[in-house]
Design a binder for these strands. Structure first.
Lengths: 353, 353
DNA sequence: ATTGTTTTCTGAAACGTTTCCGGTAACGTT
DNA sequence: AACGTTACCGGAAACGTTTCAGAAAACAAT
């Protein structure tokens, strides 16, 4: 059915134009929902596109377009299950708006902003979502990134990320760190070890730690720096493996502790494994608490006590807001999401001696 | 240092050419390691590129290039931890060869081949890796995909994927299904429930099931179809949730069983959770075995007995071979990788009544 | 009929590369 | 000195699309 005289290898916008008896620019306008077009021709073009299975070449589009319809998601930390969820949601939202998404994972020692700048050069991006990055002393670089961006699950109260300068979507890490520590103390724990971030962590890890210390202080418990472990640089950060190693150190050390507060669920799981390998039990011998609220926490044995971040909402809001900024419908905003403390099996009242 | 008279917004190949006093095509040749160029000018150009931080625009390259230096990875099944590992390795290998990678996840009800074809239209791909797909009755479509491709972790013995027609990298699912079942039987289990694939599964699930049945038969155990569960369509397949649901059905049903063989580690973990929620214990009350050998299996409580797929090698080989095919250095090959049965805590000898 | 206004469309110029084809320079050989 | 060969290089044409400036058509108002 229809005109079958097209035997070209790949069918282009020109073919569609020819078939419809219109100019190439008309087809373009039809595709991109530009105003200056009659419903009739628009329909005709739509039909032809359907019939011939035409798909616009993305490279050509992005090359010419004034605003590349592509947004980049730069994720700090590969294979973080929390982010995996977020990325998925973002992808859906981005696709829904007919944008394409490019994702890049960066290690702890890479500068996410640099990565974004490079990406912008080679791709022509409309905007960037930074997921889980650290943005201390990055102001200048962020300015070099001329396109709109949002900071998602970035530390909320870090010195340099202030006020309405940027769009930030995250939880109050200090408060949540406090909340969990307070909970653990109320369970009777006094010697609470912490599996925290990088030694020179300047973002979420630092904030959660601040909350931890505040809680101890408020309860009149001295902070013991020996109980604050920092993760190893050479291992994937916030990973099970990292948690495992730190916990092993803890267990073989001479410092007493009854409880571990890990700054990610993955590390908490690593901790549980290390404890089990040492012939001990969670929560009988040690209580273990995590942070994030990943799906695995539900399934793990014991079920993980944790701070559940509303990652779905954070992801959703982040891209929604990015698009509003792109549409000039909105200014920068900062939204702090509150978390939920899930009391589950991995923590319990401290055993009385 | 250097000529600082370039105040253009974005610096292009023309700028580099101008700065170096050479033609644009010379710069292009220098970048792409084409032969006709003297070491001296090549160096000069390299220096200029370095100095000005020039990054070629990818859209323009892909538009013009005869062979798009991009390979697509089409993954059947989102958020499968096994594939996450594989994807990461592939990305490294692809980047190492100066190619870019585009990844697309497809659901069970989407045709991965169609997705690849569409992708090829909009991107100009050099090749495709299909990860974990099903390729029954897809011969014709695969031919429409004019570019080279490899099938990674696709069912090895499926009827239609025969001989040297395609490049296939996978494990022998029938054999491994047999191996695990045989092991479980030797532990004394006779009533082994199976958490298998989709009802109309035509690939790995079907093959593993075949191995399962063969093992039973060889041991003189009758196959009980009621113990063969198929996963739900409306839930992410091979997921913890799916395993959980199936196990719940099993537990609330009236069929007796002493052991569960799940066709993925994730489903096995779901099974463990369901058993725990029912107040039972693994492996005391039920043995549970998985398939895949994901990292989580090491950390889970109990540690999962499973069939460990050499996913790193599979991923590595898959892209290595794809590149060899691209370079015309190699014909299609089929490599079957053998797995390792990890005997761990989630299985044990059947309790005597 | 003329003019103005709005709607719809078109041709051509970009976008930044790669690739083709041919040209010049350098060198060796007679 | 003339020629052939090789090694480098440059100009310009693509690639397939969007965008821009303005043309044509359609309609309305005088």
């Amino acid at each position: 059915m229809g005109i079958e005289t097209l035997n070209t290898e790949e069918i282009t916008i020109k073919d569609i134009a020819k078939v419809c008896g219109v100019g190439v620019s008309t087809v373009s306008r039809a595709i991109n929902n530009h105003p200056d077009i009659s419903p009739k021709t628009k329909q005709k073009i739509a039909d032809a596109i359907e019939e011939y299975g035409y798909i616009p070449n993305n490279s050509a589009r992005n090359l010419r377009r004034i605003d590349g319809k592509c947004i980049a998601v730069v994720v700090k930390g590969v294979s973080n299950p929390l982010f995996a969820d977020a990325v998925q949601i973002m992808e859906e939202e981005i696709k829904k708006r007919k944008y394409s998404m490019v994702i890049r994972y960066v290690n702890f020692d890479e500068q996410e902003v640099d990565v974004a700048i490079e990406l912008a050069k080679e791709k022509k991006l409309a905007g960037v979502v930074f997921l889980g990055g650290y943005f201390v002393r990055e102001k200048k670089k962020l300015q070099k990134l001329r396109i709109p961006f949002v900071l998602s699950t970035a530390g909320a109260n870090v010195d340099n990320i202030s006020a309405e300068e940027y769009s930030v979507f995250c939880v109050d890490d200090e408060k949540e760190g406090y909340r969990m520590t307070d909970y653990l103390i109320r369970l009777g724990h006094k010697k609470i070890a912490v599996l925290s971030g990088m030694p020179d962590d300047a973002s979420i890890g630092k904030l959660r730690l601040k909350g931890y210390k505040r809680a101890l202080k408020e309860h009149g418990i001295a902070v013991d720096e020996d109980l604050i472990l920092h993760m190893k640089r050479d291992i994937r950060f916030y990973s099970m493996e990292n948690g495992y190693q730190m916990t092993q150190e803890l267990l073989t050390g001479r410092k007493e502790f009854t409880c571990i507060f890990a700054f990610s669920d993955a590390m908490a799981i690593g901790a549980c494994r290390a404890i089990a390998d040492a012939g001990k039990k969670v929560p009988d011998d040690y209580s273990v608490a995590g942070f994030d609220g990943i799906e695995m926490g539900d399934y793990y044995n014991p079920q993980l006590t944790t701070i559940k971040q509303p990652i779905h909402e954070i992801a959703m809001e982040s891209v929604t807001m990015l698009f509003e900024i792109l549409d000039k419908k909105s200014e920068n905003v900062r939204r702090i999401f509150s978390c939920e403390l899930l009391e589950r099996e991995s923590t319990r009242h401290r055993k009385v001696l």
